[in-house]
Design a protein around this nucleic acid. Structure first.
Lengths: 256, 256
DNA sequence: CAGTGGTCTAGACCACTTG
DNA sequence: AAGTGGTCTAGACCACTGC
């Protein structure tokens, strides 16, 4: 029998049903058999769709009992997280940026830069510093080191106008995986000047290592957000824990 | 044919193989058919095991190409994230705590407490404030509101000795899902005194809403970590984005 | 074009929850 | 005891990668 519906579409239908209140928070969902009959797909397809929703934190699953609705489905995708511009537009703000500097350098040991980029100390890198603004107000400093093959493409990008993420995709560079480390730091003199705030202000620092589909490092970034402008949210459960806690200062860090 | 191996065990075997260097970072893994033949399981079971590793960020998967090793497997589970004590012991530190206060109160609108706990304003809650220490050094302030059915059990727990998480499990209370919001804030006078630091120090604030297996809220917590002591780490990819970004100050917050 | 992963089906058995 | 989700199998077809 030909599948009328794929598991992604089925998941989308179920998400909509939750959003429309067909299945309120805490309600029990129909069984796998009911759904497979109703939509004309096999039980496996239903399970695949449910697996998606479970991963998203929308439903909870337990052997023997029907699934329950945990939370409202959220719009969230990797692109919005990767790209400041895309994210800003999504929340209805006007994103802009001011380039502070773009320079060619060599990978150093500071902050484990070489290691994080999978390079030897001394290999060429490109370092870009930008201030990102929401509707004209500075909210973030981005300090990114790119590996050479990505960095050389940056000269072809209008850094203050285009989204780097969008631009690089045209050159066949895809940011696919990322590991984020999130900490709180105090603004130093440079941070304070760039963000037009006082030194000592609490900043949320996100250090991010992004790789392409095959795991090759593309960039290593140190982003600092104004503490009262940004937050990160993570959902997890016993079944999947993408979040972990760690102590800082594993290795001494020099000032930038 | 009876399965010799389940998908969890197979995943564990593969994790070990990566850890032992059988499959170095960036290497291509054997195909699904090879593994299914070698371990005597069906292709579906292999795919299930690979799905686990993909979720953990250990491997990357792309149609048509063999899977590649992305990162080393990590020990991480929900328990270590949920329980400060368990986590501390895992990293070889001695956890302890100092109870500042435990009081019975009523759910308020402050910080959306009632809403987050699924209660009406005025319903009973228990509020616990503790300072958590690593090897005698204060590193975190925990301010948690519990729903009544959990809170009443707290009087039976030696808060300064036992792990609340462990103790509540004995009463059949299981923390299963959580949503974390992570921000940077500056220590106020109270925070500073409890953490033995200066007011204005950058703190990492984690606000956490935890629910039981069926999605019923159990606790709503505001944890503040000394900025130079803690970090959170998240792995994600285009395929699964458990992390999202948001602007703060959606609703005005009163001081605690 | 051969190999590989992605999707789907149909059916079986087991472990657990619920009335 | 009936219903429900969890696991596993065997086989089919498709879409994409890489030689």
């Amino acid at each position: 029998m030909a599948a009328v519906l794929g598991y992604r579409e089925l998941a989308e239908r179920l998400r909509e049903a939750v959003l429309e209140g067909v299945h309120p928070l805490g309600a029990k969902l129909p069984s796998e058999n009911e759904i497979s009959a109703r939509f004309g797909v096999s039980r496996s397809t239903v399970r695949r769709a449910f697996a998606l929703l479970t991963e998203e934190g929308v439903i909870a699953s337990h052997q023997g009992a029907r699934r329950t609705v945990l939370a409202a489905p959220r719009e969230q995708n990797f692109g919005e997280l990767r790209s400041f511009s895309r994210w800003a537009r999504l929340i209805g703000e006007v994103p802009s940026s001011r380039t502070v500097g773009l320079e060619r350098g060599t990978a150093s040991e500071v902050e484990a830069e070489a290691e994080k980029l999978g390079l030897a100390v001394g290999d060429p890198v490109f370092r870009l510093t930008r201030v990102r603004l929401l509707s004209g107000r500075p909210v973030m400093i981005e300090r990114t080191s790119y590996v050479e093959r990505v960095g050389v493409l940056l000269s072809a990008v209008d850094l203050d106008r285009e989204s780097i993420c969008d631009a690089l995709e045209k050159f066949g560079i895809f940011f696919e995986h990322a590991e984020h480390t999130i900490e709180a730091v105090q603004a130093d003199a440079v941070d304070a000047r760039l963000l037009e705030t006082a030194a000592g202000t609490a900043l949320l620092r996100e250090r991010r290592r992004t790789t392409d589909p095959s795991g090759q490092p593309l960039e290593w970034s140190d982003d600092r957000y104004l503490g009262d402008a940004m937050a990160f949210t993570v959902r997890n459960s016993v079944a999947s824990a993408p979040l972990s806690r760690s102590t800082r200062s594993i290795r001494p860090t020099r000032a930038n």
